Computed example of a mutant assay.
Amino acid sequence: MVALTVERLVRAGLDPEPLLQQAALPVEPPLKAVRESDRQVAFLSAAAEALHDVALGFHVARDYDLRRLGLFFYLLASSETAGEALACFERFVPAEDPSLRGSCRLSDVALTVAVDTGGASEQARKTLSEFWLVTLLRLVRSLVAPETMPIGASLSRPALDPTAESEMETEFRVEIAFGAPEDKIDFEPQLADVRLASFDPYLHAYLVEHFERVVAENGGDTSSLRARVIKAMTPRLPHGTVTTEAIAKDLGMSTRTLSRRLSEEDKTFSRILDELRADLALHYIKVRTLPISEISWLLGYREPSAIVVAFRRWTGMSPTEWRRMHLAKPTHLAKPTHFAKAPQ
């Protein structure tokens, strides 16, 4: 994104050299070889201010040639299915951008891809999250079908500029939830099984081996602990087995270590569980034929009244009231999602 932002500054008639020097980044190419994430986010923050662009990440991501992602693009494109491509995004995106962590998880209601920019400043986090969410959406559309649409999208930062927010919703073709717990895109779950026309098993095996080496050289594990906890929690929810002990065991650590490491990320186990339940609940409630009692079970509640209490805390209304209000609202941005048919 640094190289793309430099080009945007030049097109705007601004000299990028002072901003690069201020961030201690090299002025000469290849900028994409730079791996000092703190320096990158400092430059991106300064560039957004210089351009007076509150949606720099979105604008930069909207129109660049995706092949500029280099081998990372071909790693995803050579995957057998869309689900495999997004799993590769989760595993290997830090090799492309050290400031980023990815998460891909599949539930009964959605295939969710999330990004986490860690300890970056608020401005840089907003810029990077927007850039990668738009890039993800464009990647899915280029690999599956241009008309593919998400069923939901959210950004952790608040809505700031009506014009920018409108542009983003037009691009995503779905209403975006601002001020959310997570930066993510939700697709219909069947997207995971769509076969990619660009599937190349030989190229894919070579690129996976290449990126595995890069990950090993950079210290191994690439996903944020919060993302790993959510991924472990999701299949356990309907069975009511989401406990600190069970998740710690799934992640290969003690409960004490899990709690300590979550605290280091300024997270708690109970808050992550509550945010996951709230997120899934808002998906489940949109399914008219799904009884509230079954939603309660899917979320791991064993007392039917528990979901009513939780829903009032999340939304200020009961599940029935929220469903009635939501289904009555006009959905000018919501359209059926279309996927490319798998090759026979």
Rank of each mutant, 00 (worst) to 15 (best):
G118M: 14
S121R: 11
S121G: 15
Q123G: 02
Q123M: 07
R125G: 14
K126C: 07
K126Q: 15
L128F: 08
E130I: 00
F131V: 00
L137V: 06
R138T: 04
R138H: 11
V140C: 07
L143S: 11
V144T: 09
A145R: 09
A145Q: 13
A145H: 14
T148A: 15
M149S: 15
I151D: 05
G152T: 01
A153G: 07
A153W: 01
S154M: 00
S156P: 01
R157M: 06
A159D: 03
A159T: 01
P162F: 02
E165W: 02
E165R: 04
F172G: 01
V174A: 12
A177H: 08
G179L: 02
A180K: 06
A180I: 05
K184C: 11
D186E: 11
D186K: 08
P189A: 02
A192G: 09
V194H: 03
S198E: 12
S198N: 12
F199R: 06
D200R: 08
H204E: 08
Y206R: 12
Y206S: 13
L207H: 02
E209S: 14
F211Y: 13
R213K: 15
V214E: 15
A216E: 15
G219N: 09
G220Y: 05
D221V: 10
D221P: 08
S223N: 06
L225F: 08
R226Y: 01
R228Q: 14
I230S: 04
